[in-house]
Design a protein around this nucleic acid. Sequence first.
DNA 1: ATCAATAAAATTGTCTGACAACTTGTCGGG
DNA 2: CCCGACAAGTTGTCAGACAATTTTATTGAT
Lengths: 241, 241
Amino acid sequence: MTDKQPANNLTEQVMARLSADIRGGRLAPGARLPTEQALTTELGVSRTVVREAVAALRADGLIVTRRGSGAYVADPAAGPFRIAAPRTTSLDDILDVMELRLSVEVEAAAFAAERASRRHVAAIRAAWQSIETALKRGEGAVAEDFAFHRAIAEATGNSQFPRFLAYLGSHVIPRQSVRLSVDTPAERRTYLARIQHEHSRIVAAISDGDVTEARRAMREHLTRSLDRYRALARGKKNGRR
Amino acid sequence: MTDKQPANNLTEQVMARLSADIRGGRLAPGARLPTEQALTTELGVSRTVVREAVAALRADGLIVTRRGSGAYVADPAAGPFRIAAPRTTSLDDILDVMELRLSVEVEAAAFAAERASRRHVAAIRAAWQSIETALKRGEGAVAEDFAFHRAIAEATGNSQFPRFLAYLGSHVIPRQSVRLSVDTPAERRTYLARIQHEHSRIVAAISDGDVTEARRAMREHLTRSLDRYRALARGKKNGRR
DNA sequence: ATCAATAAAATTGTCTGACAACTTGTCGGG
DNA sequence: CCCGACAAGTTGTCAGACAATTTTATTGAT
């Protein structure tokens, strides 16, 4: 199920072992782990290795240690937060993540329309202009597109939105360039022009402070690209739900 | 800015220091960290502490180590995935996270209305019923409420939604019980009754497959609780934007 | 016999020193 | 100029010791 490269360093081996014990349920939340000495004898490694593995798992939020008492399996709810599986990026997974992105961005546009400052609006406009010049130069403008969405997220005044987008973008956007279903340059150009037109409507809504329209425009914009991926997924291998 | 409890264990102090250096940009991605020996002398701790801190940061995906060469700041895009800050949970941070949650849940309700199976609808109805019985017993039903929202997230057919909610819920919901602005039991009862009424409208919309109404009902439901928190935050110490 | 204070044992946290495994740069010889 | 051997530097692992803290056992008084 998981990746099993031999992991030439012992610490990772011990980490994998303990992690598997915890996630596999052999060690229930709140249960106490074997003592460091017990682990050294059982696994045949030095205490240094055991301690480093424990420190790593503690950083992961899987366990907590109490001096003089022992190490305990942490409540999984208290753990940090991992969103998507980075390794297994199947096409379906990407679609799922894109839906999550749509959800966040639609509301981000609404919040931006509600409370964007003049500087924020100016930044969004500048990002739009950057796409425009890139398109006139005949480029794809994927980086500029991402910057545009990022500018909107920052205009919400809520730092969670840009952070969320930055993470999702780094994992979803790169795939976008892998395979575009549009073939001829002419088709591609009209497609990009339409995208940019959708962008302009989003800008207008945010600039006007029209919350409802901002939501609508952003949803339409993202739904369209989502549908293109859905079609692609269905074409490649149809199935699922 | 951040929380500065003395952190009685040195490892966390060193971790915090290095983590701040990396996130603060003083150490660019790809840059090499000081050697362990340099850190021991500079920070005045033993090599054991430094190594455990490095092991923890490596588990966090912030750095990578190469034997014989050194430790390097990892490319953040390659790093696993972290969304929000778990430690620094100020009231403003909670509000920001709640807005993110609203964004996701509104669209989750829409997706649920669009493609929930009969079993999913039944599960949502059952969760609603659980709240009902808990309320009749005079309980707060926070766990049941969370289960209700979770059932909706699962009805989307997109595994990212329940996962996202599970994380956010574990960090946001617990605070809900910390301090409720409603004082008298009567007020509390009417409040809970209204919440449950809002729930019923969400259930009806999803059951009918009415996407727009599902969005509207969920947004109204969450906006209301968000507004209550906003008022609470403003009452405690007004400021910010 | 019950309970409280004390002592002992157990456990994690930190320090020190050492050696192995690996990487990188240097230097000499071809 | 290229290339191999060598040396220095760095991380990985091991071993032992002591400190700080918690848990358990012992002991004593009531």
